[in-house]
Design a protein around this nucleic acid. Structure first.
Lengths: 168, 168
DNA sequence: ATAAACTTTCATTTTTTTTTGAAAGTTCAA
DNA sequence: TTGAACTTTCAAAAAAAAATGAAAGTTTAT
């Protein structure tokens, strides 16, 4: 199989995986292209290989940059910008955890804290149930939060290895 | 604050959280309604409180049932079906992990295994890079897989507690 | 100061996903 | 065996999300 063909298949797979986790398909596909290529690429080349428009490429490259998954690289004597993915899978996972924690865990936590300090009126049983739910969800989110903190603190697979060794 | 109002807010929050993780909004909202209510509800009541159509309620209740997050309950002398969420947060998390593992981790693993046993033609450097990527991703997915296996084996927060104690 | 090279923006279009609701299907009591 | 009560299906509509591309903006060499 031609390597370019394999990369293309990988780009498709990564794209649909992204979709089912709420990541725009093009964003995941650009990322897939960049991690499967050893060298930096220009916006042109990305548009061309992933078959997307300039605007789409630009926006999603910026987003990948926000997630710290892709960096802009300037080459001496070259006018164009080049894009380079962080090729370290553990860094990648770490940055994704950081970003999702910030975007999703934190707002939910704020909501739960808010609910916890509210007084309710209405059916007593419903109130008791709801309060209990909020407190259990808080505990759960806190644990997830700690887990993600741990994952963030380490930059390789040591955490996983340790966890697995201990728990099996 | 009226408890029904709080539940409604919770339903909205849970719905948009679901959306950003690739779960249909209505599905997450129905789930939110069911976990925030101590008693079983009929399709009618769900349609009414979440403000969705009969078809939507039916399809998403079935899906929640597939995920083992919601069970159908029949009451003696009642023709209608009632729906009841599993109220245990740790069970809930466990079932979500099981389902996502099955739906997403396993297909990716198959893809990677497939790529690993393929021979490539083309630029040597690109081939080497791609092979390395596939092997690192495999290792990563395997670790995730083990982690999810662990999470599945336990039905409370023991795993988290243990992990956290060990790693802090 | 100019213009070519390149990047960014954003209103519009397209695609994808989700929802609707009416019809078909099922179950069950009489 | 009929029909009322309830559930399921699925083609069509609506909504939401993502992508396009042309125009505006920026940078840099001369």
């Amino acid at each position: 199989m031609e390597i370019k063909e394999a990369q293309l298949e990988f780009i498709q797979t990564w794209g649909s995986l992204g979709s089912s986790w709420g990541i725009p398909k093009s964003m995941a596909q650009i990322h897939a292209l960049l991690i499967s290529t050893p060298h930096e690429l220009t916006a042109e080349e990305i548009m061309d290989r992933v078959k997307i428009s300039r605007g789409n490429a630009n926006i999603n490259l910026r987003e990948l940059n926000n997630w710290r998954l892709v960096a802009k690289v300037n080459k001496l004597g070259e006018r164009k910008e080049f894009f380079k993915a962080d090729h370290d899978i553990w860094n990648m996972a770490r940055n994704i955890v950081i970003e999702r924690k910030k975007r999703e865990l934190e707002p939910v936590m704020r909501f739960l804290n808010n609910m916890e300090s509210t007084d309710f009126t209405g059916n007593e049983m419903e109130i008791a149930h709801f309060k209990n739910l909020v407190s259990e969800l808080k505990e759960f989110v806190q644990q997830l939060d700690k887990l993600s903190e741990m994952a963030i603190r380490f930059n390789d697979n040591v955490v996983f290895k340790k966890m697995i060794k201990m728990l099996k």
